[in-house]
């Protein structure tokens, strides 16, 4: 098929959608027995209950609750006072795992860690603007993917990563193991705080992908047996850094 034909089909679909749109909404309004609504309605209840808004943990409480939750999920949680210890840990784990291929975000924190230097024999791919297929292939082959969490949530044991040019979604998804580096100041008490900050920083246009990761990929679909690493990473590290 020529590309024009393809364009034509999509244009035709788009035309139909625009044509149908208002009838679709009007039908809803008719069913609801009132005129079509164009101004924002007042929400009598919006967001979480008030007691939850007040729920707040101290810094140290947040860190320890996050780590406890992550470990309960079957993940590894470690806290490091300095970059050097963190790098040493990553190197040791990679060597124990006999990891040959790694992929990581291009991120200031990761630049400083100089992982490539510590693991000279490993093939380390850096996610930055380049050929899509090649990056995906690299991510799919990788033993370890390394990202820097944008935020973490103590209450649920969750790591939050936002997509971007240097922050591929696949890095936290395709490799066998995931290492998420978390700056301890980014650990929040609850989801609402993270959602609010993301909205505040990004304004009306959100990043294309916001991913909340809570432990290793899992399934209980076969006879209720818990299986780890079904599609996403089965080994997950939350590496907290205090600097």
């Amino acid at each position: 098929m020529n590309p024009n034909r393809s364009e034509e089909i999509l244009k035709e679909l788009e035309r139909k959608a625009k044509e149908k749109e208002e009838t679709f909404f009007q039908h809803i309004a008719n069913r609801l027995g009132r005129p079509r609504l164009h101004t924002p309605p007042i929400q009598p209840v919006r967001g979480v209950p008030s007691f939850w808004r007040q729920y707040h943990l101290d810094f140290e409480e947040r860190i320890s609750l996050f780590m406890a939750n992550w470990e309960n999920l079957g993940g590894v949680a470690k806290r490091f006072g300095c970059k050097e210890d963190l790098v040493t840990f990553i190197r040791n784990e990679a060597e124990t795992m006999q990891a040959k291929k790694l992929i990581r975000w291009q991120h200031p924190v990761l630049e400083q860690l100089e992982i490539e230097k510590t693991l000279p024999k490993a093939d380390v791919t850096i996610w930055k603007e380049s050929n899509r297929e090649q990056l995906l292939q690299k991510a799919a082959e990788a033993d370890i993917g390394i990202v820097v969490a944008d935020y973490a949530i103590a209450h649920t044991g969750t790591v939050v990563v936002l997509s971007g040019a240097t922050k591929g979604r696949s890095v936290s998804l395709l490799p066998t193991a995931l290492m998420a580096i978390i700056r301890t100041e980014d650990v929040k008490t609850k989801m609402g705080e993270v959602l609010a900050v993301i909205q505040k920083r990004n304004g009306p246009s959100m990043p294309a992908g916001i991913h909340f990761i809570t432990g290793p990929s899992r399934s209980s679909d076969i006879e209720n047996d818990l299986t780890i690493g079904v599609h996403g990473p089965g080994i997950v590290y939350a590496l907290l850094l205090d600097e």
Partner: peptide
């Protein structure tokens, strides 16, 4: 929370 919660915009 489920292991993954993804918001796609």
């Amino acid at each position: 929370l489920t292991v993954y919660m993804s918001a796609i915009t």
